[in-house]
Design a protein around this nucleic acid. Structure first.
Length: 911
RNA sequence: GGCACCGUAGCCCAAUUUGGCAGAGGCGCUCGGCUUAGAACCGAGAUGUUGGGAGUUCGAAUCUCCCCGGUGCUACCA
């Protein structure tokens, strides 16, 4: 085997690692420091591994192999996010059971990952579709179901900081006296309303083509993320998870994490916390009327009672971030789905409003977006009373107000809100200015774009902060002061209250598909077999709720869940007290399994608990988590949320699961002749299959190339020429050590026991330093280039000391482990290098005796001189002035100033 | 539209964190060696308005501002 024969080398060492369980994580009792390095586990799709997968996987593998050589006990696991739509769609098409498809795909993925030589501890493998795994997913759901969020609860975190708000057992939820008085059933219903997992009838995104409802996050431009199918809005009873309760903590606790700022920002924006006020506008009720007398009476009542938690029927409650503009409110808008639409619509407006709401309900989100430029709406015929000045203002229905945000109703201040302004101009509603812009204000692009003439006067809306005008006692106050002042007044008079809102919505947690986790929930039935609305949980001992076997996977075309077609035996039972029960037939979304898989890796065979507390304490948190940026707001927010709930309930020891996060950049297809590279896709025909690359160049070359392409986080185009480049590098490394004309693997004659020269040592130690530092920074592309440099140098040396080559092979091993093991072996070692000590560099050996420094005149390079290393500024200057060439160039010039930086340069400022 | 990131040789990219010789590494290209020849291999070499403009500085690829171009995310959130 004279030549670099990657095929036999790679398969031999992979077999060696497997047989010797080389990468099995050690027991916590080993006494080593732990390091938990995690990849985002893949969905095992039918098309197999994509070259994007090994990018992040190779980076983590390098970190792990490096950490082991530095004496760490490394946990590096892999598993399968195997519930999900594609397997089920495949089942609809072919009749193959999703479990069968999933198992086949997992086998393919596993073969491909093993082929790349990743140092996973395969004994920790798991799949979210394993009953022993989803048993605990269901168990965690029961924890969510058993928890309510006490926003007042004060506690001290592990960091010693005081915090407010914690998830607590539902049994500790205070029950109001009147509820207790109403009986046990009322108490149960009251508790159900406060759980972190709750049922809610709400407009949801129903996708007929996929046969399921989708979360907001799964909809892109009004179409399903998967398959781009149209999505309709229908009202359905669905499971929701109260992630909004954790909005503040999810935003605040990002602070201490070692994550890219851009991802933190993305999450903060997604959570979208805003502060403002809720304000009630009096609309009266049919029995009392809406006149000024009633309004005054209402005000009197309110100042006595205070601001009620639930808005009554006599008011329209709005949320605003600009309560300081209350005096400029000239109309109100309610969403078409608002519960007051009917009662606020007068007889003459009935037809118009009904028609408008009908059209709005038909609009998909896409239509709404496309029509975004033109505001639409219709007057209800009713008026509300502005609580601060008693003005009667008209109430409109318009779909630019969303039912799902705030209270689904707004007060419109056209002078200071661009959307309201557009609407007011179109429908000729008065515009009252109540904020004076600062003198320096210039209209923004948006503001001037919609400026319009109202009653012959050109008006430009102003959405910024300024000074209050036309606002009674607020006049002259800055926007911030005016906000505080008006909130004080509203609070005192029981008309309004400061409030916080989030763009983040509660998480729609049920799907209607077959291939997902069943819920551990039973619904009570009455004598006629109809649900009473009361629920019971599956007992923890009887988990998992098995996934029922089915043969027919065709979507029904209606929102009726697939699991409703299971056998009666699965669907129904009679409880010990004789109550007839029916199972929940929705299934969980794919996110469920991926929300906690990193915990299970610590203890994947535990049959007693989802994780052993001691193992959780030892391994968690994940020290490094690498994956695609597409999960910045979905998976990474959901799993943080679950983790916080588990923490609040005492099941895990830390508030955050992922200490350091890195997002790999996408690998694009090969650039075309114009240098343009596009995303890899089947339709473009530019997909690179890792199998083909490994076949032609080997796993080490693929690993090395993916790391050499450029910075990990960056988007980069694929290049086959680049693969050849690193392949040639591996060939040079091989020939630097091995005699490629010998019959058997044998060292070159030039490889010997001689002591290394100073120059060889300097080169080696420079390389050790650079590669070590680059791995710590995950700057793997530059680490590789340093090893190329070393190879170029050493290949020219006629004497190649073994000691130097051995250290180099160790440096190379995390990147190209197969060839490194082979060379390590050839150099006379008998065991794997996976636990050899990582080479240390000696700073003293790096120092060069003399260095070349540039001499500048006015910052321009004019000469170079050689000086001994370690000169101070004065000596540098003296050396420069002593140089003949410099002397000559200085002739006839006046030196104004000299800047000398030791070891760097000398600059003469001359005239 | 908003936010974020990016722009260095024909191409992928270093140097930007911490201002100090524009080039580490790879691809491609040219020339030479080896070879019957090609591939592989070995050796030598060329390539620049650092997207544009201004500012700060003794000195700017690096810091600041404006503009241009590209990519990603987001999109009526009151």
């Amino acid at each position: 085997m004279p030549r670099y024969d990657f095929k036999s080398i790679e398969s031999r060492w992979q077999q060696h690692w497997e047989e010797n369980a080389t990468f099995k994580a050690e027991d916590p009792a080993c006494g080593k420091d732990k390091m938990y390095v995690l990849d985002m586990f893949p969905y095992p799709s039918g098309s197999g591994l994509h070259v994007g997968h090994p990018e992040g996987y190779t980076a983590t593998d390098i970190v792990c192999r490096h950490a082991r050589m530095n004496g760490k006990n490394v946990l590096h696991p892999m598993g399968w996010d195997s519930f999900g739509l594609p397997a089920e769609e495949h089942a609809v098409k072919t009749g193959t059971h999703p479990r069968e498809t999933t198992e086949k795909n997992i086998a393919t993925f596993k073969r491909q990952l093993k082929m790349l030589g990743f140092s996973y501890d395969w004994t920790r493998e798991l799949a979210t579709t394993d009953p022993e795994y989803y048993r605990w997913t269901q168990w965690i759901f029961l924890q969510l179901f058993d928890t309510w969020y006490d926003s007042e609860h004060e506690w001290t975190g592990q960091d010693g900081k005081q915090r407010t708000g914690k998830g607590r057992p539902i049994s500790e939820l205070p029950i109001p006296a009147e509820v207790t008085a109403a009986g046990e059933e009322a108490v149960r219903r009251y508790q159900d309303k406060h759980r972190l997992a709750y049922l809610s009838e709400a407009p949801v995104n129903w996708c007929p083509a996929l046969g399921t409802v989708l979360a907001n996050e799964e909809i892109i431009d009004g179409k399903s993320e998967r398959g781009s199918h149209p999505v309709e809005r229908v009202a359905l009873k669905q499971w929701m998870l109260r992630i909004t309760a954790y909005g503040d903590r999810l935003a605040n606790e990002l602070e201490e994490l070692d994550w890219p700022e851009s991802i933190k920002l993305l999450q903060r924006n997604w959570i979208g916390r805003s502060t403002g006020a809720e304000v009630d506008f009096y609309i009266g009720d049919a029995t009392v009327g809406t006149g000024p007398t009633e309004f005054e009476g209402w005000k009197t009542t309110r100042s006595a009672s205070g601001f009620p938690a639930e808005a009554g029927d006599d008011v329209l409650r709005v949320y605003t971030t600009r309560p300081d503009t209350l005096y400029g409110a000239t109309y109100m808008v309610i969403a078409p789905e608002h519960r007051f639409v009917d009662r606020l619509t007068t007889e003459d407006q009935k037809a118009a409003v009904a028609e408008y709401c009908r059209k709005a309900s038909m609009k998909s989100d896409l239509d709404r977006t496309e029509l975004a430029k033109d505001k639409t709406g219709v007057f209800t015929g009713s008026y509300a009373t502005n609580p601060v000045n008693g003005e009667q203002i008209p109430i409109w229905v318009a779909d630019y107000v969303l039912i799902s945000y705030g209270t689904g109703a707004i007060m419109a201040v056209p002078a200071h809100d661009l959307r309201d302004f557009e609407f007011a101009v179109k429908f000729e509603i008065p515009v009252i200015q109540v904020v004076q812009p600062p003198a320096s204000w210039k209209p923004s692009k948006d503001e001037s774009a919609i400026a319009a003439s109202v009653n012959g006067i050109e008006i430009v809306p102003f959405a910024g902060h300024g000074t209050a005008i036309n606002s009674d006692h607020l006049n002259g106050k800055s926007t911030a002061d005016a906000k505080a002042a008006i909130i004080g007044v509203l609070d005192e008079s029981g008309i309004g209250k400061s409030a916080v809102n989030y763009k983040l919505r509660d998480w729609l947690f049920s799907r209607q598909r077959y291939w997902g986790e069943p819920f551990p929930i039973w619904h009570e039935l009455d004598a006629d077999g109809n649900p009473t609305g009361l629920m019971r949980t599956e007992s923890i001992e009887s988990l998992p709720v098995p996934h029922p076997h089915m043969e027919d996977f065709k979507p029904t075309g209606t929102p009726e869940p697939m699991l409703a077609k299971a056998t009666d035996e699965w669907l129904y039972k009679t409880d010990t007290d004789g109550v007839r029960l029916k199972r929940e037939t929705n299934s969980m979304p794919q996110w469920a399994g991926s929300c906690w898989y990193f915990l299970r890796f610590c203890d994947n065979k535990n049959g007693e608990a989802f994780i052993d507390p001691a193992l959780e304490k030892y391994w968690m948190p994940v020290d490094l988590y690498i994956g695609g940026a597409e999960h910045a707001v979905l998976h990474l927010l959901y799993s943080r949320f679950w983790h916080k709930v588990l923490f609040d309930r005492g099941h895990v020891s830390m508030v955050e699961p992922f200490q350091k996060l890195v997002n790999q950049g996408m690998i694009l297809g090969e650039a075309d002749e114009n240098g343009k590279a596009e995303k890899m896709s089947k339709s473009r025909g530019n997909v690179i299959n890792p199998d083909d690359v490994v076949k032609e160049y080997g796993a080490d070359a693929l690993r090395l190339y993916e790391m050499f392409m450029g910075p990990l986080e960056q988007v980069k185009p694929w290049s086959m020429k680049g693969v050849e480049g690193v392949y040639r590098f591996l060939g040079r490394v091989w020939r630097m050590i091995i005699d490629d004309r010998a019959e058997e693997v044998a060292l070159l004659d030039s490889v010997n026991e001689a002591a290394a020269t100073d120059e060889q040592l300097r080169m080696l130690h420079k390389t050790i330093k650079a590669v070590s530092e680059d791995i710590a920074k995950l700057s793997l592309n530059t680490a590789i280039s340093r090893m190329m440099e070393f190879t170029n140098f050493m290949s020219h040396e006629t004497s190649r000391p073994k000691s130097v080559l051995q250290d180099f092979v160790l440096l190379l091993s995390p990147f190209a482990p197969h060839i490194a093991e082979e060379l390590w072996h050839a150099l006379g070692n008998t065991s794997t290098l996976a636990y050899e000590a990582w080479p240390k560099f000696d700073e003293a050996l790096l120092v060069e005796d003399s260095i070349e420094v540039p001499i500048q005149f006015n910052g321009k390079l004019k000469a170079k001189i050689n000086v001994p290393n370690g000169l101070d500024a004065a000596a540098m200057q003296a050396a420069a002035e002593a140089d003949e060439n410099v002397k000559k160039q200085l002739e006839g010039k006046t030196i104004v100033k000299v800047i000398a930086v030791p070891g760097r340069m000398v600059n003469f400022v001359v005239r």
